[in-house]
Design a protein around this nucleic acid. Structure first.
Lengths: 195, 195
DNA sequence: GTCTATAGGAGGATAGAC
DNA sequence: GTCTATCCTCCTATAGAC
């Protein structure tokens, strides 16, 4: 795959992001060199700087892109008005979205400490916006009496932590289908917050 | 804190481990240099090699020590025979143990990918031994009819993921006491697996 | 847009003096 | 046991040719 000279701006950019994503997820941001990324794409290290001003920005853009995708996909859902139905929709959506993007999810949680302060603040803002919807669902369900949740913020963290755990064991083509995974976690989430 | 020559083998070893623990947790194994660790202890980089053959072993020993502490502390618990009582004991023990050691827990989960294969295998074996107890509790509770759990292995992962989430938000001296945190998570765990 | 070449520094680890 | 000095490798990022 050794590449000689030529112009490929339309495809090299996405290939760099894809290579960086996989390498960061597998080895960690700090452990991956720009030479490794370039090697995976088939260009020299210097060529990467036509697409990113530096390594930090490459990481930041990957995380920001992932969280923007998450918020956009979530905004496209139509969960209705009933808190229980909204919680089920949120749970199934979360599992489905995250299970399809293990590398992005891994990086977005593991590489926070490698973000410069300004970048960290923005990523946390986006994540917070996503978590806030779940907290609102829980509060609405408490009001209407279907949920028994003493501390909606903490329960939000607990539910999301449980759901994110899927990515530590799930492998496509494994013992359980996506529908079975969704059903199993929805059963646990429903029971854990129900009145 | 600049140190001149002298012999301090009894205290330098623990101080190196403590410094490495804090730095690895804050910045990540790959992002921390041996010079940084030495600087935090107040020695020169070369002196570290009187205590560890290399950086990799330093990480491995930290993780192995943590998991051995975990298994020893767990073995000292006397949870009784009833599955529900054992699950409550496991839940409260897990939160209490992990909330007191945020750096160790963080490293033991985040730096797995920086372990050499042989070290990784051993760490996973220790973690697996801990998880197996929870799975056994769930299976016993299903047999006796107090738990409704379709897949004990997956529910084990889900419960542990939820409990580990404590460390992402808990801060000593915060809004909730340890007892309140334990009660909140135990309420969720109990409901999520109950028949 | 990609290449080669390199600046300029930091990394892990070791040798030998004290 | 710690220090200083150093080896050798690797790093990010840039400069200028094609």
């Amino acid at each position: 795959m050794a590449r000689t000279q030529g112009s490929h701006s339309d495809i090299t950019g996405p290939r760099i992001r894809a290579a960086a994503l996989g390498l960061f997820a597998r080895h960690g941001f700090a452990a991956v060199s720009m030479r490794q990324i370039a090697g995976a794409v088939g260009v020299q290290a210097g060529a990467l700087y036509n697409y990113t001003p530096d390594k930090q920005t490459l990481l930041y853009e990957l995380m920001r892109g992932h969280l923007n995708d998450l918020l956009a996909a979530r905004a496209a859902e139509m969960p209705g008005a009933d808190p229980m139905a909204r919680l089920e929709n949120f749970t199934r959506f979360h599992i489905r979205f995250h299970i399809e993007r293990p590398d992005e999810v891994f990086i977005a949680y593991m590489e926070l400490r490698n973000l410069e302060p300004a970048n960290f603040t923005e990523i946390e803002r986006l994540r917070r916006a996503y978590e806030d919807e779940l907290e609102t669902i829980l509060r609405d369900g408490v009001k209407s009496g279907v949920f028994a949740v003493s501390d909606p913020r903490i329960v939000t963290y607990a539910v999301i932590a449980m759901l994110n755990g899927v990515n530590t064991w799930y492998r496509a083509g494994g013992r359980l289908s996506l529908e079975e995974v969704e059903a199993l976690y929805w059963d646990m989430v429903r029971k854990s917050v129900s009145a």
